[in-house]
């Protein structure tokens, strides 16, 4: 495993997990695109574990942080949707170049799925398959949930503030401790994970879902036409629940299924 900075002005932080020495089977290369904000924090270790599990199946894996998030350069206020899309393409190019593999697979977790599909829709060259892991299919809906969780979270933490400052925060540009600039909010809200886009990309698709009720039925029906490999993962984290805000995503029980999905 090797962590490093790459991309324009070495502004992106990435970690490359090479295949394990004893690994056998067909060689693959997988790019993992994570989520943003509080979901980034909650799923970080699980994405690392997912990467490590894939290396045991002879897979090269790259995880990375979008510009102005995580370990990458930039302040939170500088995060930008178009830059996120570009970062996915930059990471793809790095992985292809490093591994000399023409075909790579992409795993998109939560809003990372939305970013990955939108980033690669126009340029699916070299893209072999896409795994959508608990995908966010409607940016606007995702943002509404973040706002609700933020209001509830601040309302609950008010007991630690002086009485004059107690209120549930709404209409703010900070959500659960993460700043989202207006232009980023606008871009996320207008983004959708369209099945037609996936169909046009003409790549194999797999879907890992913890809680199918969190996905719109119409979207699931449309997806069914693409005949994706689908598996239900253990529901270890409820993304829209205030009670689960302090909990980390625990992926270990679902790892074998998830790895199978990615490499299907």
């Amino acid at each position: 495993m090797r962590s490093f900075f790459f991309g324009p002005e070495q502004s992106l932080y990435g970690t490359y997990h090479p295949p394990r020495e004893a690994a056998t089977g067909l060689e693959h290369a997988v790019l993992i695109c994570g989520s943003l904000g509080a979901e980034y924090m909650r799923s970080y270790r699980s994405l690392w574990q997912c990467a490590e599990a894939l290396t045991a199946r002879n897979t090269h894996v790259l995880r990375f942080d979008y510009f102005a998030t995580g370990e990458s350069a930039g302040r939170q206020s500088e995060a930008d949707w178009m830059r996120c899309l570009q970062d996915v393409r930059t990471a793809c190019a790095w992985l292809q170049s490093e591994t000399a593999m023409n075909q790579i697979r992409v795993v998109g977790h939560r809003i990372g799925a939305l970013i990955a599909v939108n980033a690669l829709a126009d340029q699916p060259v070299g893209l072999d398959a896409v795994t959508l892991w608990d995908p966010v299919v409607d940016g606007s809906q995702w943002f509404d949930v973040q706002q609700t969780l933020h209001a509830e979270s601040t309302r609950r933490s008010n007991r630690f503030r002086s009485r004059t400052r107690q209120y549930a925060e709404r209409d703010t540009d900070e959500f659960l401790g993460f700043h989202f600039a207006d232009h980023l909010v606008k871009a996320i809200k207008s983004s959708r994970l369209d099945v037609s886009t996936l169909a046009a990309m003409d790549v194999r698709c797999s879907l890992g879902v913890s809680d199918p009720s969190e996905l719109p039925e119409a979207w699931l029906d449309a997806m069914a036409r693409l005949q994706p490999t689908v598996d239900e993962l253990k529901p270890e984290s409820r993304w829209a629940s205030i009670s689960d805000m302090g909990r980390r995503l625990i992926v270990r029980p679902s790892l074998p299924k998830l790895v199978d999905l990615v490499l299907a």
Partner: peptide, 14 residues
């Protein structure tokens, strides 16, 4: 706690 090295809400990076 169990947070990674960026710290809670990326506090440690700043």
């Amino acid at each position: 706690g169990i947070d990674q090295k960026v710290g809670p809400t990326r506090l440690y990076v700043g």
